[in-house]
Amino acid sequence: MKLLKTLTACAAIVTGISQASGQMLINGAGATFPYPLYSKWFFEYAKVDPSVRFNYQSIGSGGGQKQILEQTVDFGASDGPMSDENLAKAKGKILHIPTVGGAVVITYNLPGSPALKFDSDTVVDIFLGKITKWNDPRLAKLNEGAKLPELDIVVVHRSDGSGTSYIFTDYLSNVSPEWQKSVGKNASVKWPVGLGGKGNEGVAGQVKQLQGSIGYVELAYARQNKLPVGELKNAAGNFIKPSVASVTSAFASAKVPDDFRFSMVNPPGADAYPIAGTTWLLVYEKQTNAEKGRKLVEFLNWAATQGEGMAAALDYAPLPEELQKRVIERIKSIQ
């Protein structure tokens, strides 16, 4: 009798455990840039629907694309759109679901930290190594009244492949045919000049220490660390300070094609900050596991509505309303 009791007790414990782990596990992997927001989403969503649990590995966009292609995860995430070549390799149709936007800001270190303005030509030529001194007449003309020393410009760029570099080089390629031809856009490129720092913290660390240096980091990082950032002249001719609001207006004025694989650098909007980009979740249109697919769709719907509201507090730009509607419409097509 005693034995039976023990056995039932054991069985009860085992069922208890399996019930607890009877939660559905949805796996995702990819981009590091939206990771802080996504983990907040998963944390909050656990309260909305306790029956699913999300596991997200921020291994980088390349890894995210690779894993969704190989179907080792239920969703991928990427800061750059998948190429036609990679999409053709997929076993089904992969949808790009834009989630939030981010911006890349220009930060620098000059004595007296003056507030500086740049336009696309000066940024391109600084990163091409053609403007080499801070008192270059073109910089002086943009910044009348600012004290520009006769100091060598030291360019600092990301050494690790990253979505930040992708958006930045996307912008440079967009505004300069020369950049597009000689360097191009990618998560890592062959930089004509400069030092490589690992991660946002590597670039910011270099720039903070080295007088005369200039680099680029993502907006959220710059805001949280209170780095000096430059204003940038946009396509409409206005000088724009990077902020969540100016990224959302970049979103609003960007042309978004039907497959959502869009670039929003240098958009026409009057208040749009020009170096902005979005990040995507990658999901198959036809889900292999119906139950899992249903849960995933529920989550995506929640993210596109409730989730968007949490973005600005973490320095990500939420989707503008019109795009949000289109995204929700697209999520409905997932089976």
């Binding site: 980088g60 966009s61 694309q65 190429s83 990679n86 690790d160 492949g161 979505g163 998560a187 890592s188």
Partner: peptide
């Protein structure tokens, strides 16, 4: 500045598409 074999793999592997 320079670069090493191990560093370039660590830097670029995650985002190589």
């Amino acid at each position: 500045p320079g670069y090493t074999l191990a560093s370039v793999v660590a830097n670029e592997f995650a985002e190589a598409t």
